[in-house]
Structure formats: C-alpha cells, structure tokens
Amino acid sequence: MKMLAELFTMAPGNKDHQVATRCAIGVFVPLITLVLLDRLDLAVFASFGAFTGIYGRNQPHATRFFLQVRAGSLMLLVMLLAALTARAGVAFAVPAADMVWLQVFATTVVAGGCSLIVAWWRLRPAGSLFHIFAFAAIASIPNQPPLWQGMLVAGLTVAFSLLIGMSSRAVRSRRTPWVWPHSVPLTRAEERAALLESIGYIVAAGLAGTLATLAGERLGFGHNYWAMVAAVVPLVGHSTRHRVRRGVQRIVGTAIGLVLLAGILLLQPAPWQTVLVIAACQFGAEMFIARQYVLAQIFVTPLALISTLLVVPASPGILLRDRILETLIGAAVGIAVVLAPTVWRRLRAPQPPQAARSAHPS
C-alpha cells in the first residue's frame, strides 16, 4: 500500500506555472508559424528546439541564460547529427532493416555521450532522455526536409526559447541581478558517478532498443526509440526505490495518457487546433514533471504522439499500440538495469557463518 501511495504523492509546487507558461509559449509560437506557412514537415525541429526552455527552471536570469545556451547548443548538435545520419543511410543505400539497427546503435551512443555532457555541464533535468528522443525521432523520418531549413527552424526556436527565458527581466520586480555563473568542475566522486551513469544509459538504451527492434520484427510494431526513451526514465533518481517508482509511474502515466490521446484523436483536430493541444500538454507536463510523474506522463504521452503525427501521419490505433508496448519493454529494461547492481552485490556478499553451515551441512 505504501508503494501504491507513493506513486500518486504530490510534491509541493515551486513556481511551476511560470516555467510551464514559458515552455508552452516557446513551443506554440514556432509551431503555429509553421502551420501558417504550411511547413509542418519542419515541426519536429521546432518541437525539439523548444526543449531549450525546460532548463534553468527557477534559476536567476544570468544562470538560466547560461544553462539554456548550453542546452540549446547541445540539442542543435543532436538534431544535426540525426539529420546527417538519416541522409547517410540514403546516400549509401543502406537497406531499411539495416538502417533500423544503425539508428539503434547511433541512438545508444548519443544516450551515453549526452549523459556525460549533461553531467559535465551540470544541466537540469539530468540525463539524456530528451536527446535520445530528438535524435531517434529525426533520424527515423523517411522523407527529410532540406537540412538548412530544418536547422534554421531549430536555431530560431532555440533563440526564441532564450528570449522567452529572459522575458521576465522586463518586469522590474522579477528582475534578478545579472551575475555570470562560474563553471564548477566535477569532483572525482562526481566524475565517477557521471561515468557510471553514462554506462547505465548505454546499457539501458541499447538493450531496450535491441529488444524492441527484435520484438517489432516478430510482432509487427515499430517506434523502437520509444522503448529506449522509457528505459532511461528510471535511471534518474536519488535512490533505487525512487528510480523503480519512476519506471512504474512511466507505465501508469502512459496508459492513462493514451486514453486522453484517443479522445483527442476522435475529435480529429485541425492542424492549428493540434498545435493548441500540444501547447496545452506542454504546459501540463511542465506543471507536474517535478511534482507528480504520473500526472506529467498523462500530458507527455499525447504531446509526444501528436507531435509525431504532425510530421509522419500514421494510423492512430497503431500509434497507441506501439506506445504502450514500447513503454512496457523500455520501463522493464530500465528497472532491471537499476536493480542489477543491488542484486549483484547481494549475490557477491559473503554468507553469514550460520547460513553457510545450513547451505553446506556436514
């Protein structure tokens, strides 16, 4: 019962509405602009560029700007590498089946590498979940838009997010002193923890991607990168119990979110209405992501899938099925990776004398 209660415990708020408003505006304006220009093929670049706004949540303005510049630069690099990976597959005529495995391998490298960079730069949220999502989603788009156009949209969206992040400086009462932060190098213990965490990301993302791809080939479902994203969710947390709980919350929140998504899709919203839904879901996700992960996932699920539908139309039923199956695979892998060190230590621990005598009677 205690574990069940913890799944739905609500942490106290901390100006979450301010962050949620900034993030909602940061994604709405670029997407509605693309709708008006009839260029929804570029929407994925705007969506991921807007992730810049989630960093530096309640930091002073100078620190927030510093962190968001770093976060936006890293996201731009990830999107560029993803687009180049997709083009390399076409240029070298890589068969579709082999391309899927190339994407799993490349996404796994991104998972480990970005985890290290995020730790080195002390970015929050920690980990490489957003980078895994961005890289795999863009690399898997079959018909890539012109590279310069995609990166231009991404760059402008990042710049707009930076502007939104600084917008409250226009209000004198909200303005914070402009003190440029100093980079604090990681301690030896922090370096070791960052390295171990990056290995965990590599193992979780790689294993989840492999299992999801193999299962997809046999059972006929796709979007293996959703499993890779779900697999790294449990890796963020201050204790094993908290990490396992995040994995379970991911499954529960996704299942409820799919019900909400089904209701939205039944309404068959127009593109401009879809953008409004995305902005509303972004607001809801940021309102609860630091307070109640199940509630946040209820908004994240339609946010992710509707954004996918904007760029690559697909059967809603197939998307719903793929999402829950991939989430189950990924969350299970992530929880297993979290529990593995504890299980290994217990197996390696010497048995008490009494237990040893019981196990080996004379």
Rank of each mutant, 00 (worst) to 15 (best):
L266Q: 10
R291K: 04
S183F: 15
A119V: 02
K15H: 15
L347H: 13
L266R: 09
I264G: 02
L339Y: 02
L310E: 12
K2G: 10
W344C: 13
R250H: 04
L84N: 07
I318H: 13
V27S: 10
G127A: 09
F160R: 09
R192C: 12
R357T: 11
A270M: 11
L76N: 05
S362M: 15
S358I: 14
G209E: 03
A159H: 06
W120S: 05
M287H: 01
P234E: 00
G330D: 09
L347M: 14
Q68T: 07
L328E: 08
L147S: 10
A111H: 07
V158R: 10
D98V: 12
V109F: 09
E6F: 01
T52D: 03
P30W: 11
I298H: 00
V90L: 14
R218M: 14
M75N: 08
D41M: 11
T107A: 15
F51V: 12
L258A: 01
A285V: 12
R124H: 13
P181N: 04
L152K: 03
S198A: 15
P316N: 04
A336Q: 06
A285H: 04
A193Q: 13
I324P: 04
S183A: 15
A93Y: 05
V27D: 08
Q268E: 14
W120A: 07
V179E: 11
A11R: 15
V110C: 02
P341I: 00
L77R: 10
R172C: 01
T327S: 10
C114D: 02
V158D: 09
V259I: 14
A230W: 06
L34N: 08
L214G: 02
L163A: 14
P12M: 12
H182K: 14
D98T: 14
V19Q: 15
W101V: 08
V277R: 00
L186C: 10
E326N: 14
V244W: 01
P350K: 03
H238P: 00
P145H: 10
N143L: 15
G334A: 12
L31G: 12
F160Y: 15
M99V: 00
P271A: 05
V90Y: 04
A340K: 07
Q68S: 05
V252P: 01
G150A: 14
V90W: 04
N58S: 10
F221W: 12
L261V: 02
G220A: 02
G127D: 08
T308Y: 12
P60L: 01
Q297D: 07
Q273T: 06
P302C: 02
I256P: 01
P181T: 04
H131R: 05
I138A: 07
K15I: 08
R346A: 13
P313G: 02
P341Q: 00
V118L: 06
L219P: 03
G49R: 08
D16Y: 04
V44R: 12
R188C: 05
L31H: 11
T240H: 06
V100F: 03
P177E: 08
D16K: 05
Y293T: 00
S161N: 14
D16P: 07
Q18K: 15
L195T: 11
I132L: 07
Q282K: 06
Q68C: 05
V244Y: 00
I138Q: 09
I306T: 15
A88Y: 13
Y55F: 10
G155L: 15
T107F: 13
P350A: 07
H182C: 11
V153K: 04
G165S: 09
R241L: 09
I25Q: 03
V311W: 06
P234M: 00
I54E: 04
F283A: 01
